[in-house]
Structure formats: structure tokens, C-alpha cells
Design a protein around this nucleic acid. Structure first.
Lengths: 358, 358
DNA sequence: TTGTACGCGTTATCAG
DNA sequence: CTGATAACGCGTACAA
């Protein structure tokens, strides 16, 4: 049931406002301060101002102070485009997210942006989710802005794009996987390790007949392969698997779970390759009158916000996406500062958080 | 219970790779094609190429075709920084999100980015969440990039920043509220209308003693004021309210709900000013052994993903954030194309989605 | 340590 | 409709 907007939809809401109202200062757009003006004020040449800002150690103490003062007095900020044009490098960092719909990725972007912001870099977003056809032009368009670095939530899959990025010779962090030959650097975790934790947990709890629910591509597929191999190694039986092409929301998980349960028999525990599927599965299990973990055990992957809150709490593999993004940002900064980072790749631990569902 | 990473954390996962491996083509970074080269190839002057690209109607058919061919042949793409330096305007759009942690905002950003991408613009993210102290420098830094336009999920609150943005004279869309005097344009909805829907719904269902749960600032405060005024108008009783400073997750909602219920008595229905609080409240109600809507009714605001999935389904006010963002993007494009948009502000309808919780 | 000369790649301006 | 010329604001390269 949906009730429409009231007739007075144009009513004005109160709006919070802070600070004093400033008188319009006559001429609207003040002309921008240029480096030359700062130089005049400080009694030096423009290039000295530039150096005082970018390589302070090359300028004498006395002048540097005079220049700093002139800068704050005028409110000078260098024109990023002029700088980028001349130097061939900008203060932007490209972030390629497969989708903005997943909190995992936006959390990572958040962490990365946070770190970069403090160093004066800003993030431009590329959304690569939709198709390979859109991906390549998007990458080129963004890379035309000569970003100082790039962060990718995932692994760039098209070899054509990989080599394009590699040739740019800028710091690049791939993530969310454990690639053996990253384009440049990696802030990742091992999907296989995560699945191993799941399998060992299920085995230890005595579950023998297992089910799998996942996406039929990308990480979903990696996790499924690992799941099947490891189950075989441990002598566990795969009683049913169901792969779906795309997961847009919790409803997909409900549907998939029901189909899986109805099509296979005797499944004791289901591993859901992501939390959206897992949460849907738990809700549907409840609807179907199945108790957890008595009738069915469910384990997810991702530890999203709700995993802990859906009764009786979902057991899931957890990765700290924010921390991963922040680490990526730090790797980038280290590299930009001229140092080589400690390691070209940093593997984050995965942990299994056991809750009521298993 | 948390189980650590297995010892073999460095195991390499399989990685999907698509496409053929390309031989390293000797000299690593091919020199960029410049407009001059395209001009030579087409037998015209550089400026004509520029015009063929940006104002095709100013160039004769014949030359335009020759130029287009030369462009595709060379793979020419103009240097965004040179363009921005000369023209004073870039192909980036600034997006200020109060936080990346809320799906509402990232959805809006997603919709906006989608529309802008198709027109060759890219989004740079600014995260304004943390503090006023950080906000002003951030805005200046991003605006130094001379974005073509700006999108704000919310209303810029500091008057100092409002007038700064206003003076830039670029298309700016504020959102998520119904401001009477937007900086420029508005893609919003009425919080008061949303609360009105809630109140009328609760009144119609016969609830008389109401509770409120919300954030003590920003929109939370606006919604609380509206709630209290409208309740008074309808002769309903406010039996208890609880405002919290910040809502980071569902757990905050649980805690707040419990405190509210324990501190007040006889509450029949609780309005939660956002979905995170609402979902927490529902989960906690269940934990406390309260049935919905028998013992307690709960209504949220936001219609997040999970609202429909938490049993017995949460009644909530719904706004289509993705559509709102997309509309903002379109308003921006319209304005950039030189037209004035139909209306400087577009108010989106809010609807009440009734589910099992009330 | 500081300054001079010049060019990064494009587009505004104005003349044809 | 087209082209020559001159910036846009800064930083590199080199000389002092």
C-alpha cells in the first residue's frame, strides 16, 4: 500500500542555516589571486613562491616566512590546471568502483579519500559496473585528466586496460582479491582463505551436506571454485549449488535460497558468497519456517551492517573495507612521495565471525 | 567468536582475466596526440579542429568529416587541463556528500554521475561529514578545480560557504530538503510532507500516544519539530522523544529504542526519523518480546534496502534517491547547455509505504 | 639559493 | 566560415 504526497507538496520546510549573512560585496566574482601577486607582495620572483610552496627546503627561511605571510594575506591557491598542464600530473586520484550500490566499495572509497584528502588529493569517481563496452572509454576519459594515482575496488579485468594503466607509470592500487601480478600494487585479501575459514568452520560444527549460493562471475565464481575444491578435500558433500547472474538486492537472495532448497534435498548448511545473498537467505529461511542453525545453517561473506542484526545473527567472513581503502590511500601517498612502499602488495586478514546462524 | 586468518594467508587466489595479452610495445609511454597533429592530418588549423569538436555547427560539413576522421585515426583526446586553463571551466562536477556511509547519498551520487558521465563530465567527491572546520577548506580546494557545476546532498549550511558558491556563478543543485532560497537550484523533497504522511497514517490507525527517535541536528531536528507540531494539531500525545547526536549504525537504533521505551510509558507507536534507527528499533523490539504492530508500531523514514525485509516489514517514508540524483544531473546539464531549466527547483514526491510494522 | 626564459596544449579574440 | 595571434597560470631547465 502506498499513499501519495499530500496536496501541499510545495510547503517550504525550515532549513538550518549557520553563520551570519554576508552583505553582497559589490562586484560578484573577485578576480583570482595569481602567483605573481603573491610574489610582488613578498618582494620575490614568482618561481620562488612556487618553490616555497612545493619544495620549502629550497628556499631560505626568511623569504619563506615572508612568502607564507603573503600567501595567507592574499588567500592564494595555485591553479590546479595550470600546474597539471605544466607538470603533467594533477592532484586528483582516480577511483574506479565497480558499483556505488555496495557499501563495501563505498566504504573503501571513503577510507581512501580520507587519507588522500589530508594530502591535498581529491578523488574522481568512475563507475565501471555497467559493461565492458563503457569501461574502456571511461578509463581513458578519466586518465586523460592525468591523475596522480588510481585506486580500483577489484581487479581490472580487460588485459587491454591493464596494459594501458601499467604504461601510465603512476601508482595504482588494485584490491579485493589476491592477484599474483597486480598492475602495480595491491591492497587485497584472499578469497580462498575466507572460504577456507568457512569450510573449516562448517566441518568443525559437524555439517556434512553443503549448499552454495553465489554470483556466477567474478569473485562469486572464485569463491565457488574454492568452496567446491576445499569441500572435496575435507570429504564434505556438495548437495546443491545455485549461481545467479547478478545480485541487486536482498530479494534476490530470498528467491535464490528458496530455489536452492526446493531443488536439492538434505542440505544442512548453505554458504552464501556475499552478504546480500546471505541476508536474503536468512529472511527466507525464517519465512519458510526453518530454524537456524537447527534446520539449516547459513554463512555469508562480507560482514555488512545488517549481518549482525538479522536474527539470530549471520555468521560471515569479515574484511575491513574502510581500513583496506585507507591502506590503499597510504600506499599511494608513500609511492607519490618518492619512496617505494614496504611491499608492493598488502594482504589483509580475513576473519570468520560466528553468530547464531551456524 | 572470531577466528583468525589461516596461516597460508599469502596463497594466491585465481584471478579472472579477459582478453589477449599484449606485447609490450617497446617505448613505454607513447607521446600524447595533440590538436596540432590532428590539424595537420586534416589540413586545417588547430582552432578549426577545436571548433569541429566543441561547436560543430561553426565548421563546414566537408572539413568536419575530414577532421572527425583524423581524430579517430589518431585517437586524439583534448587535454582537459589545457582546456580548463584557457576556458576557465573544466569537465568535472563537484559532489559534496555529507557521508559516504549512507546508501541514500551514494545512490544519489550514483544517479547523478550516471547522467553526467554520458555528457562527458566526471564527478569529484568531497566528504563534508566530519566538521565545519574541514568543510570550508575542502570546498575551496575542490572549487579551485573550477568544476562546471556542483551537486550537494543536503543544504550547504554555513552562510560563508553559501555565498562563496553563489559567487562562482555555476550551476549548483542542493537537495534533500525544501529550501526556500537555494544557492541556485534544488532537487528536493519536503520533510514536513513526509512527516505529515506519517502522522496522518498513525492517526488513521488509531495510535494516540506517540514516541519519537531521531538525530538532534540537521534533518533529524526538522523532522522532530514537524512531528511535534503536527501531532499537537491532530490532538495526538507525544509520550516520549529521544534525540541522539549521531547515528553510525543499526546498533545505535537498538540502544536508543530501548532507552526510549524504558524511559516513557504507554507509547503505542514510534516514529524513527531515519531508517537506520527504525530498523534498529524493530530488531530491538523483537528482542524485547514486543510484537508489531500489536504491542508497538514503528515507522521509519528513508525506505532503505532492508526496510522491507526486516520482519514484519517496516512502514516508512520513501524517496527515490537515485532518481533524485539523476534529476539533479539533468538540471545541471540543462543549465550547462545554456538553457534555463524549467524550474529552479524540483520537489520530489514522498510516499508512505505501509508494511507490517504499523 | 635565486632568477630568467620559455613552453605546457588549448581556446578567446579579432581580423579576414 | 576560417585562420593568426595571444594569452591562460604555472613549473622546468638552466644560468647566475
Amino acid at each position: 500500500m502506498t499513499i501519495g504526497s499530500p496536496p501541499f507538496a510545495a510547503t517550504l520546510d525550515p532549513v538550518l542555516r549557520v553563520g551570519t549573512r554576508i552583505e553582497q560585496t559589490g562586484a560578484s566574482s573577485k578576480k583570482r589571486v595569481r602567483i605573481e601577486e603573491v610574489a610582488r607582495l613578498a618582494g620575490v620572483s614568482p618561481i620562488t613562491v612556487s618553490r616555497a610552496l612545493h619544495s620549502p627546503h629550497m628556499v631560505s627561511e626568511a623569504r619563506r616566512l615572508r612568502i607564507d605571510e603573503a600567501v595567507t594575506q592574499t588567500g592564494y591557491a595555485s591553479n590546479p590546471h595550470a600546474r597539471a598542464l605544466k607538470s603533467g600530473r594533477s592532484n586528483i586520484v582516480a577511483a574506479f568502483l565497480s558499483t556505488l550500490a555496495s557499501q563495501q566499495y563505498t566504504q573503501a572509497a571513503d577510507g581512501c579519500a580520507r587519507v588522500l584528502e589530508d594530502a591535498g588529493y581529491h578523488m574522481v569517481m568512475g563507475r565501471t559496473f555497467y559493461s565492458y563496452a563503457r569501461e574502456t572509454p571511461l578509463i581513458h576519459a578519466i586518465m586523460d585528466m592525468r591523475p596522480a594515482a588510481a585506486f580500483i575496488t577489484g581487479v581490472m579485468e580487460l588485459e587491454e586496460n591493464r596494459s594501458f594503466l601499467r604504461n601510465l607509470k603512476i601508482p595504482i592500487v588494485e584490491s579485493w582479491a589476491n592477484a599474483s601480478d597486480p598492475i602495480d600494487m595491491l591492497a587485497g585479501f584472499s578469497n580462498v582463505d575466507g572460504v577456507t575459514l568457512v569450510i573449516d568452520h562448517l566441518a568443525a560444527r559437524g555439517y556434512r551436506r553443503l549448499g552454495f549460493l553465489g554470483r556466477n562471475s567474478g569473485r562469486g565464481q572464485i569463491r565457488q571454485n574454492a568452496f567446491e575444491q576445499l569441500a572435496a578435500q575435507r570429504g564434505l558433500e556438495i548437495a546443491g549449488t545455485l549461481s545467479v547472474p547478478n545480485v541487486a538486492g536482498i530479494a534476490d537472495g530470498r528467491r535464490a535460497f528458496r530455489r536452492l532448497i526446493e531443488s536439492a534435498s538434505g542440505i544442512e548448511a548453505v554458504f552464501c558468497a556475499n552478504d546480500l545473498l546471505g541476508i536474503g537467505a536468512m529472511l527466507e529461511a525464517r519465512t519458510m519456517g526453518l530454524t537456524m542453525p537447527g534446520d539449516i545453517a547459513i554463512v555469508g561473506f562480507g560482514d555488512s551492517d545488517v549481518a549482525s542484526e538479522v536474527p539470530p545473527g549471520m555468521t560471515t567472513v569479515s574484511v575491513d573495507a574502510y581500513a583496506l581503502g585507507a591502506a590503499a590511500g597510504e600506499m599511494i601517498l608513500t609511492r607519490l612521495s618518492g619512496d617505494l612502499p614496504d611491499a608492493p602488495s598488502r594482504i589483509f586478514p580475513v576473519t570468520l565471525i560466528q553468530r547464531g546462524s551456524s
